[in-house]
């Protein structure tokens, strides 16, 4: 191979430098906002907080205290349960709705606008709606009593404020199923109906067509949308705080309680909780992505 001539090399260098300069603003924002915050959080959780007059860095006692307590594991289980349940239900509903959307049905054009509504309404409004609708003495209980299904609204089964978390899951699903629908619908439009039709003509049943032809093709959309909603669900705070069943709380609520404690040294304990959430969430998401990558390679995608 011939060496590039010096003037060309110089031009090449100049271009690279110019590109770096152009990217600098983005990089600095990313580094300061995300990297900086993360580093600070980790430092604090390891006992570095001179602004509180605490500096025992490196000190693993906060993590030790956290991970050593039984309630931490209870909280973790609860957090994962809400997040996974909501993600799974949103995924199934979202995919079913998206599949319906690429077919013809009466009222489709109206529905195409309706289903996006929850996406534009904030979570807090959704939580308020859940309280109004699902609580004892809420709309549903009154309706049930009115219809004679139960004799008094207070007999309505407890949906909110239990550790089954149906209220929390309902709010997540209400907001996230449309998001999954939106994502998968776009993917389905790109995939088109032809491979499904080809499979049907070749003799495949509806199930076979879905699981062997449609699902593998929408998998990238499923992975990215579940990744996003699961990451949100595991770190979300308002819904479990308002609609949850009290002690043991989910991890984000536990962290919030530490931060709000009059004893400000507990802030460090809170930071350890936050860092734990981040570690667990990224561990799960990383494993998920790695498994998906392995599948993709197996079917020959690079």
């Amino acid at each position: 191979m011939k060496n590039p001539k010096p003037p060309e090399l110089a031009r090449h260098r100049r271009e690279r430098l110019w590109m770096m300069l152009q990217l600098l603003p983005v990089f600095s924002v990313l580094t300061i906002l995300f990297g900086g915050a993360l580093v600070l959080a980790v430092l604090q959780s390891l006992g570095f907080a001179p602004w509180f007059g605490v500096n025992t860095f490196p000190d693993f006692s906060y993590f030790g205290a956290l991970w050593g307590s039984y309630s931490f594991w209870q909280s973790l289980a609860l957090t994962l349960y809400y997040a996974l349940m909501a993600t799974f239900i949103s995924l199934v509903m979202g995919v079913l709705l998206a599949l319906a959307m690429v077919r013809m049905f009466p009222g489709k054009s109206l529905y195409k606008y309706l289903y996006k509504l929850p996406l534009m309404i904030p979570y807090t409004v959704g939580i308020a709606l859940a309280v109004i609708m699902l609580g004892n003495g809420g709309m549903l209980s009154r309706l049930a009593a009115f219809a004679g299904l139960i004799s008094d609204p207070s007999e309505f089964p407890q949906i909110l404020k239990t550790h089954y978390g149906w209220g929390i899951i309902a709010v997540y699903v209400w907001k996230q199923a449309p998001f999954v629908t939106l994502t998968i619908y776009a993917v389905l439009l790109g995939v088109g109906r032809e491979t499904e039709e080809a499979a049907t003509i070749l003799g495949a049943s509806r199930w076979q067509t879905f699981f062997q032809v449609t699902l593998p093709q929408i998998l990238p959309g499923i992975v990215s949308s579940t990744l996003i909603i699961f990451a949100f669900n595991i770190g979300a705070f308002e819904a479990p705080f308002i609609l949850g069943g009290g002690y043991p709380d989910t991890l984000p609520v536990v962290a919030w309680r530490y931060f709000n404690d009059a004893d400000y040294t507990l802030q460090l304990q809170g930071m350890a909780t936050v860092v734990s959430i981040a570690l667990i969430a990224s561990g799960i998401l990383f494993t998920y992505l790695a498994l998906y990558r392995r599948y993709e390679r197996r079917i020959g995608r690079n």
């Binding site: 032809e194 491979t195 039709e197 080809a198 499979a199 003509i201 003799g203 032809v213 593998p216 093709q217 079917i299 020959g300 995608r301």
Partner: peptide, 15 residues
Amino acid sequence: RNVGMVFQRYALFPH
């Protein structure tokens, strides 16, 4: 119906 169809854009299963 046991018919066969070759689609205009083939419609092969990409995966």
